[in-house]
């Protein structure tokens, strides 16, 4: 399998109260196309920072990131945006739907931004796939949390991304809705061959992934045993 994401010597330092604070230290790993990978770790361990760098949302200061064969660390903001539009999908804990657009329009959004034709038909199919065919004309505030996250999942897969980043995708949902969203992510991952990179506290979700990367004080360790993870990361069963 070919590598879709490659990280070399990635470090990140921020200034806090005049002092340099190292958030990430020499992270190094590769993710193959079609893989599902969970990034786990305690709060404040640097998971979200890592995710933001991998997805090109933040600027890489030190180290190298190769995403879909592009040197992400060398791209400017506009180029990163283009790459995100073409290759990357996102699912966030707080859904991040556009409140002034209907569910259908939210799903159409990435397709239209990348000038894809038949955006409406594609979006309708995706909504059907996430079980919301009849809620397409509802606005986010007319949907439940679970439904909103399903719309977000449909939107994330709309442009058939090579890689999907999800930040605590079930964090704001109850167990039932969390399970539905989880299933959806893996079904679409399988169906479209999309690489899945999840940041999560949910051990069940992490266990469904093929690989787990554990963050601890800005450092990354891979494929630790499940018990060890629970002990190190303070994880709990959702």
């Amino acid at each position: 399998m070919s590598s879709i994401l490659s990280v070399k010597n990635l470090s990140k330092t921020v200034m806090s109260n005049g002092e340099a604070l190292k958030i990430l230290t020499d992270c190094q790993f590769e993710i193959n196309a079609g893989e599902s990978v969970a990034i786990v770790g305690r709060s404040g361990s640097g998971k979200s920072t890592l995710l933001s760098l991998l997805a090109g949302l933040d600027v890489c200061q030190q180290g190298e990131i190769y995403l879909a064969e592009r040197a992400l660390h060398k791209l400017n903001e506009e180029e990163r945006a283009l790459l995100r539009g073409e290759k990357v999908g996102f699912v966030f804990q707080s859904f991040m739907l556009v409140q002034s657009l209907t569910a259908l329009e939210n799903v159409m959004l990435p397709l239209e931004l990348s000038h894809q034709s038949h955006a409406r038909q594609e979006a309708e199919k995706l909504l059907e796939a996430v079980g919301l065919a009849d809620r397409g004309h509802h606005y986010p505030n007319q949907l439940s949390g679970g439904e909103q996250q399903r719309v977000a999942v449909a939107r994330a897969f709309a442009s058939r991304p090579a890689i999907l980043f999800a930040d605590e995708p079930t964090g704001n949902l109850d167990a039932e809705n969390g399970k539905k969203v989880e299933d959806l992510l893996f079904e679409l991952n399988q169906a479209q061959g999309t690489t899945l990179v999840l940041v999560t506290h949910d051990i069940n979700l992490a266990n469904r992934c093929q690989r787990q990367l554990t963050m601890h004080a800005g450092k990354l360790t891979e494929q630790a045993g499940q018990d060890e993870q629970v002990e190190q990361a303070g994880l709990h069963f959702a």
């Binding site: 997805a55 949302l57 506009e78 945006a81 283009l82 790459l83 995100r84 539009g85 073409e86 990357v88 996102f90 991040m96 739907l97 556009v98 002034s100 959004l109 990435p110 931004l113 990348s114 939107r155 442009s159």
Partner: peptide, 16 residues
């Protein structure tokens, strides 16, 4: 503000 962040995340360019 959130809309712009979402649009940028979804790959919208500056012109759009």
């Amino acid at each position: 503000f959130d809309l712009v962040a979402i649009l940028k995340t979804l790959g919208a360019n500056q012109l759009q």
